[in-house]
Design a protein around this nucleic acid. Structure first.
Lengths: 345, 345
DNA sequence: TTGAAAGCGCTAACAA
DNA sequence: TTGTTAGCGCTTTCAA
């Protein structure tokens, strides 16, 4: 089953390969009648030019790589969707690389994508989200970025200056915290995430700032780390509910944790938002899956992916593109938060 | 920023390009000392061979395409995860192509992937899941499959015989239906899906069969089509609840619809499973996100992706591979189903 | 408006 | 054990 090539087409249409290439790409005028003839042969054989050969010579592959931690977390498919839409519009196909945040997989994929000569890489999670990450890992990324355009999404690496598209997560978290305080909550908790992950730390700091602004004490036990999954949210909430002096509001690092937290509370017979307010983060489809629906912060995940690819495309095209794009998050008030109950009423 | 090539390496290591290629691929013995020298130069320059050039000559690209309807539906990321794991183990990278079931996008991606010379394609949803699909679309797929390995996941096209990996969805649905009947339910409903989609029709027919086996009447109004989303589940449940004689159990085409349905019921003050039992399908993360947790049917989505890529790999390697792989679904009993309430007790 | 021919960066005979 | 060389299928000067 030999592949058909421009030579076969050229021969059958009695022209040269150059002409075939010209009608294929419209790079130079071709007499109408000749073009007709060539097109006919192309259609007849359902000829599809070999993009590998073309890429080899044009030095652009029309492929971009997207490295992300966990497509199983509903936030990431949404980012992908935004990225894909933009990519498709510009003729790129996307390699989706899932790393579970494992740095070894990140390294492997980084190398693989470079060998495949992708035109650029969008990088999410993992090493670009560590408070302290090994110099080795940073160097790898910088090295990669020296060969091809790389844009970071929702991350930041100490000592590494690469173009980024981010949501101002701290601002978003401040919104949610202030919302709770405005509702009368005085005793807040933060659950989920990891102290080693930038996105988590930013949120904790935002919470701390807002609490202090409002004259509320931020104690070390205000924060309970533990992870990003539903299961972890559930177990953390169980811990919180077992405490001596229960908080009236619990802020979760993301929607998944919030879902687990809400479930644990419901199981314990705690009324939400009557007795306890809960907030999520990201506004994924999980937020509206549960009852009560989650008050959460929208990152506009779709736009994040879209902007990242847009920027990448600019860089690929040799334009400068802005170093930093910040998307403003939005507080989405739903049913999981409410005024604090006045005891005795 | 000129790319480094085997020539540069060869020159600097004072050997021929053939030798460089040999140490790169281990295709022929190279004297240890020579290898050392070459490796050194390679490392020094962080040389990464151009996979495009290699693919061009080896006629294999190490890329596979995965076409699916909606990565935003939690079922599909799980399939992807299984596929990716298997792909990575065999050295492939995956192009993820999202079509929203639109046939035009499917066609575009099909063409794109062929041009890019992927080694094979995994196809899900859309045209392979239509009860009647245009001959044109079938031909396109067959055409594609005549050029490269294609495996269909959870689908089937009339008149098209391609290797498939599927879950026996009908069997799964029978399990769930029988479970409800065993719990004493006599008045069942099916909601969600589309009458034009095979996966939906199979489920409806399974339900019909089980009901008839158990001497229950299957009436046209047993079925309420409408789509696959949470929103649709919600509105369909509202319709059901407004009916004269409410059913005691509602079976949903998938977990998303079930989630919407449960929410609508809860909002209407209906107790689940006390007054109403609800089942989902797919056992996605949504099933355990809500309270009560969903009784549902597990498709083993991960295995689906895994097996598909495994089969694809066999085909790429020239092995035959089985025409049809059927995965057995499992009933997962959770909290959304229970015995029918005896009125008056 | 067209064709001849020189690569793109690699692998794999074939020779040595 | 190593080198020479002919492609893989395409685009793109350069010349006609």
């Amino acid at each position: 089953m030999k592949q058909i090539t421009v030579y076969d087409i050229a021969h059958e249409a009695r022209v040269s390969v150059a002409t075939v290439s010209r009608v294929l790409n419209g790079t130079a005028p071709v007499k109408a009648s000749t073009r007709e003839r060539v097109l006919e042969v192309i259609n007849k054989h359902q000829f599809q030019p070999n993009a590998l050969a073309r890429s080899l010579i044009k030095k652009e592959s029309g492929m971009i790589g997207m490295i992300m931690p966990d497509i199983g977390n509903p936030f990431f498919p949404e980012v992908f969707l935004g990225a894909e839409k933009e990519a498709r519009a510009r003729g790129y196909a996307i390699f989706l690389c899932n790393t579970m945040g494992e740095q070894e997989k990140e390294s492997e994929y980084l190398a693989l994508l470079q060998e495949k000569r992708v035109d650029g890489i969008v990088f999410l999670g993992g090493r670009i989200n560590q408070v302290r990450s090994k110099a080795e890992l940073a160097r790898e990324l910088v090295d990669c970025a020296s060969r091809l355009p790389v844009v970071l999404v929702n991350g930041n690496m100490p000592r590494v200056s690469l173009p980024r598209v981010i949501t101002d997560e701290a601002a978003g978290f401040r919104l949610a915290a202030q919302h709770l305080i405005d509702l009368g909550h005085r005793e807040l908790r933060f659950i989920g995430g990891e102290g080693s992950v930038t996105a988590t730390v930013q949120k904790v700091q935002a919470l701390k700032a807002v609490m202090e602004e409002n004259g509320l004490p931020f104690r070390p036990d205000t924060v309970l780390y533990g992870g990003f999954s539903i299961a972890c949210g559930r177990s953390l909430m169980q811990t919180v509910l077992a405490e001596e002096n229960r908080p009236t509001a619990v802020m979760c690092v993301n929607d998944s944790v919030a879902v687990g937290a809400v479930k644990a509370a419901l199981e314990a017979g705690v009324d939400i938002p009557g007795e306890l307010s809960v907030t999520g983060f990201d506004d994924t489809l999980l937020a509206t899956s549960i009852t009560p629906e989650l008050t959460t912060v929208s990152q506009n995940s779709h736009a994040l992916g879209e902007q990242a690819v847009q920027l990448l495309h600019q860089m690929i095209s040799g334009e400068k593109g802005r170093k930093l794009t910040v998307l403003e998050p939005k507080l989405i008030c739903r049913q999981s938060t409410g005024p604090v109950e006045i005891p005795g009423i």
